[in-house]
Design a binder for these strands. Structure first.
Lengths: 377, 377
DNA sequence: ACGCGCAGTGAATCATCCC
DNA sequence: CGGGATGATTCACTGCGCG
């Protein structure tokens, strides 16, 4: 199966069924250009780290670069890498949805050039995330620090791309209720997870651990999202996407990697839906207007609200506003005003008296939501 | 004392005695241009990060974050910032000895541009080193990962600059006889170490911890070496250099910072040689998050957890939360909820089935911790 | 002396919906 | 599209006052 040939042969724009959950064979820019624009939720890219670009971009191999002592020649090599980087980042940006995000992983050899180019092209960096390796290769010559991490850049398509997916609450809950940091600790890919060729040697030189991709997808995608990997290699992105109930699109040039990745992905069993449910917070809850508490009888006009320490009292009015002295307005506005603040969450600030104690009106909102669910609202 | 005026007035090349262990006042490029070429062993540079902040940021308690909005961090565009970066990196390279090295610290806002420019100018990157903060500022809005690290680039002047100083053995000896890694753990600069102005507020918005500079100098300088800092600020580089028996050269524009730094450095007493080896970074106790059990395959999504008496059962989800009925959350939150308590240690409350019996998941944490300790989690 | 509670703070690119 | 309304959100540590 060589899906990219299929795409090339088509005169019409390819249908999603022709590229979804598929490895496209060929150059990543050419393949990206055949995909519809704004069709991808998240991109994970593990681009070549050095100037040794196989195929179209023939350059001196590493030993030759080492021998070069002319600054201009070195600069020329960087220029080629920069042009390559610009081309695929541009093509990737076209297929990304407006609220999509991209992850790029690299080392100090290339990540600075990649990051600068991403900024130049309009990507908006959200975080750089460090993958700390529990078992990095030692520095054998003792001339540098042990290179014990790699760097990932997480960016949205646009500066205004505010609607990107970030499963903050789930990450926090999975991390002892402390928000997830920008430094992650994972072992490198070894053992049974590492794909081997017929000689028993590693199939791919830079196979990434599935746990790393799982963290990325659990953080920045929803079930059913489409994750594209333009440097698919041994197919870690596809294997993890399938397991986690996400769709994938892979782009890869070498048939040997494509074959191994297809076999690997075929063997993956997806998790069932219940195990894939992502914890969401208040943000995802349906909005409840304060006035609807009055509409449903949970709150009566004329009732009195207090802050937690009973320093202020507000009177509930039939129109869903509250009044303190001469001022009236929303629970938020008045809450902010009495405290002399710019903003206030009235739902948690104001309380009502119940059996002698004070209860936040947020409790009434919770009850109202239950009623809405039962009504199928 | 204003040494830069002295240098400007001289027709002859300034003598070392006229700039060594001195703060030069003025623009960093102009000051660097007045120094003799190939005279500096190591440069530490903490340039403006070019933060592009949009509006105020408030903590959840509505207090306002004191942002870095100083004039010196304002640049009209990436082009302007790149030109600034190129200019000072070029001037810095001229004064660096052929076997000298340079450290530059930054965040994702600027470090990629700086790193790419360093490569363009012929610097040869030896490592990128991550400063992991033990106590970073949280992400208050829950829209990104907590920005918990900064990045340093360590580079030699030239690709062939093989004779640079790297105290491999000393670092290894100070690190429990394990090679020093590229990720370092230090607290941010607070408390008594943080310089205050007459109002009791922080004098400088970005004062770096002395421990960080000490690690840098212990790694890449010898006693008696000359360390130059073109963005001297509150003078951390000078204070640490003097304490460790190195010479410093500072360049700074603002007189208030120069005065404070001079006073600070005057108060420093140099250590004798024997005391110089004890400066190791603080190690955090290895924290194991529940999600890392899933990451390492010790726990599978979809698995069932029980309390010790099997009164409750919880389902493990791929996002690292657990679910009982309609409720989901962290192992601690859900453990507390089923018992009707305010708090619960999920590690000891929840168990998994193994060979017929129930074992606390804390046992899995113990196993996971073994794999993480080597990396100084 | 010691513990506890409360306030303060650190290089921050920190919203989304509805009309 | 802009503007107004809604209302979601914090970790580690220091220092001070009080009991």
């Amino acid at each position: 199966m060589s899906a990219v040939r299929l795409l090339d042969e088509l005169s019409h724009a390819p249908q999603q069924s022709e590229w979804l959950d598929t490895i496209l064979k060929g150059d990543c820019v050419a393949a990206l250009d055949r995909l519809p624009e704004k069709s991808i939720d998240v991109i994970f890219a593990d681009p070549p780290y050095n100037l040794q670009l196989d195929g179209d971009l023939h350059r001196p191999d590493q030993s030759k670069v080492d021998a070069v002592d002319d600054d201009w020649d070195q600069f020329a090599s960087f220029e080629v890498y920069d042009a390559f980087t610009r081309a695929w980042l541009l093509a990737a940006r076209r297929v990304l949805k407006p609220n999509g995000t991209i992850w790029v992983i690299g080392s100090y050899h290339n990540i600075f050039r990649v990051g600068a180019k991403m900024q130049d092209l309009g990507y908006w960096i959200l975080n750089d995330v460090v993958w700390r390796k529990t078992n990095p290769m030692p520095n054998f010559r003792g001339r540098r620090f042990q290179n014990a991490h790699e760097t990932m850049i997480w960016a949205s398509r646009d500066q205004k791309g505010k609607g990107y997916t970030f499963n903050y609450e789930a990450l926090k809950a999975s991390n002892d209720d402390i928000q997830m940091r920008s430094d992650w600790l994972f072992p490198i890919c070894t053992g049974a997870e590492r794909l081997k060729n017929e000689n028993g040697d590693k199939l791919h030189p830079t196979q990434k651990p599935e746990a790393l991709l799982a963290r990325i997808m659990m953080a920045s995608t929803k079930p059913g999202d489409i994750v594209l990997d333009p440097f698919f290699g041994s197919g870690t992105t596809g294997a993890v996407a399938k397991r986690l109930g996400r769709h994938f699109v892979g782009i890869e040039r070498e048939q040997a990697y494509i074959d191994a990745a297809n076999e690997r992905i075929d063997a993956v069993r997806p998790l069932d839906g219940a195990a894939l449910t992502v914890l969401t917070g208040k943000r995802a809850e349906p909005r409840v207007a304060f006035v609807s508490l009055i509409d449903t009888g949970l709150m009566l006009p004329g009732a009195t609200l207090y802050d937690a320490r009973k320093r202020w009292a507000a009177r509930v009015r039939a129109d869903g506003t509250v009044a303190v002295g001469d001022s009236a307005g929303s629970i938020h506005k008045i809450g902010a005003q009495v405290q002399g603040l710019d903003a206030c969450n009235g739902w948690t600030f104001w309380h009502y008296e119940r059996s002698g104690g004070l209860t936040p009106i947020d409790e009434l909102r919770r009850i109202a939501r239950l009623g809405m669910e039962r009504a199928g609202a």
